[in-house]
Design a protein around this nucleic acid. Sequence first.
DNA 1: TTGACATGCCTTGCCTCGCAATGTATCTTC
DNA 2: GAAGATACATTGCGAGGCAAGGCATGTCAA
Lengths: 116, 116
Amino acid sequence: MAQNPDLLRGALEPVILELIATGASYGYEIGRAVQEASSGKLLAQEGTLYPALHRLQKRGYLRATWKTSPEGRKRKHYQLTAEGRRHLEALRTEWAAFSKTVNRILGIAHVAVVCQ
Amino acid sequence: MAQNPDLLRGALEPVILELIATGASYGYEIGRAVQEASSGKLLAQEGTLYPALHRLQKRGYLRATWKTSPEGRKRKHYQLTAEGRRHLEALRTEWAAFSKTVNRILGIAHVAVVCQ
DNA sequence: TTGACATGCCTTGCCTCGCAATGTATCTTC
DNA sequence: GAAGATACATTGCGAGGCAAGGCATGTCAA
């Protein structure tokens, strides 16, 4: 189900990098991983996903290699570069601060309470 | 300080509506309120803020009236319409769900833990 | 009084990027 | 052989943030 594209815009790159960092490998799989990881709430359309992957590769955050699946299909497999790992960390930090700020302004609970 | 414009994009409208709902009234003041409420982390440039206000008005979420300040300056004062209040609630809900989802994927703590 | 600075509004052009639509090819299954 | 899943890609459009520029008025210090 389509949701606000302006929201996806700020979160797509860290989400893609995170999913690749935790096992997703090639485009089609990454797209499904986005849906699965978000319980269907996020959807990276193909016209969004593939350009995003190319962008991340062009910027040096991803490395791509063509492989052939056991069934004989061509797949482009992505992995994080060292710079990509650093970038993911930066994006994670950025997102955490940003979402915390917006949550606070909108009056949404967000802080983990430490139990003792 | 400049930050990722893609992040602002998804959060600007709810933030503006929220600040107007809680007291900010005219453009210049709203812009400063954004900065203040975010401790300087968010900045709505004038070329971003004014078109956003016009957009929200055009869509029926804001009503505008020109007034003159005690010092004699012209100010355009905004207030939420009934539809604007409903829209703010919808955006708040949407943002809460979205940020929760992204936080979970990125492994960022976000849920308030109930102590017992 | 003049110049700097804050206040207060606005628009234009550029650029990025999500999305719908479309295209191509292979493999499986009926 | 037809349908559907898998797997990649591109194009045109539209939305919107941002830099830059413009205009006008009030305050305050030199």
